[in-house]
Simulated assay, not measured.
Amino acid sequence: MNEEMKRYFEELESKDKTSQYEAYQHIMAETEQEVDWAYEVWDDLKADLTHKDAHRRSRAAQFLAQLAISDPENRMLHDFPDVWEVTFDSKFVTARHSLQAIWRVGLAGPEHKQLVMDHLTNRFENCQDEKNYTLIRFDIMEGMRSLYDYLEDPEIKRTALDLIEKEQDAKYRKKYASVW
């Protein structure tokens, strides 16, 4: 990892919120492409998934989701349940940010894509008892759409449209369909 990236990870711990946010933005941008330093931060990020600080949990889940494409050892296949758990975080904003990022794991390969799609599908079908479940479902649709846009896999679209059809409320069915 180069010195600039090290500095960004250090800045995440800054007392200055602007510095933290700028560092976060740089890391997110850098990890949109494959990087060769994923394992230098992987274990620390995995540990942060259960950190007492909700910001650290959120960032860790988002960064790990981004780093899945930089994981030739396929650690994510083993670590996915820990990342997925953050999508149920007690802090809704933490859970939501994690859920909005989780689709990126599916870019790492066919097995990853299936893992993500299975979890998103199950969550869509079974989240009605969760607080803000309509937002959760909308985020799931957006995640599936993003995955579809990258992979152009018609099965992703078919799955999403099938889920939308299961929505009983016409207002929300229309909202979810608007993503597609």
Rank of each mutant, 00 (worst) to 15 (best):
F138V: 04
W103Q: 07
A60Q: 05
E22Y: 01
T87W: 08
L147N: 02
L147M: 14
E30N: 10
E10C: 11
L67S: 04
L120C: 06
A65R: 03
K131I: 03
K113G: 02
T134I: 10
M141F: 05
F92C: 06
Q100V: 04
L135N: 14
Y148V: 08
W180V: 14
Y172L: 00
A170Y: 04
E125A: 12
I69F: 06
E85R: 11
L120Y: 10
R57P: 04
S19M: 13
R75H: 10
R56M: 09
K171T: 11
N74W: 01
I69Q: 06
T121Q: 13
G143E: 09
T94N: 07
D139L: 00
H112I: 11
M117S: 05
K113A: 12
S178G: 03
D53H: 09
R173F: 07
A95V: 05
A177K: 13
L99W: 09
H112K: 14
T18W: 00
D36G: 14
T121W: 01
K15G: 10
M28P: 00
E22W: 00
D129G: 01
D36M: 14
A68Q: 02
A95N: 10
V86A: 03
D79M: 08
Q100W: 02
E13R: 13
K46M: 09
D16F: 00
Y133V: 00
A29T: 15
F80N: 09
H55L: 08
R56I: 08
L45S: 06
T87L: 09
E22A: 02
N126W: 00
E11L: 14
E167Y: 06
R59T: 03
K175E: 05
F124D: 00
H51F: 10
S98F: 03
E11D: 15
Q66S: 10
R59M: 05
D162Y: 01
E30G: 03
M117G: 03
R56Q: 12
E4W: 12
R137C: 07
E167K: 05
C127R: 01
A108K: 04
F92D: 05
R7C: 08
A108T: 10
M76V: 12
D82Y: 07
Q62R: 09
L115W: 05
I136S: 03
S98W: 04
Y176Q: 01
I156T: 11
E22R: 05
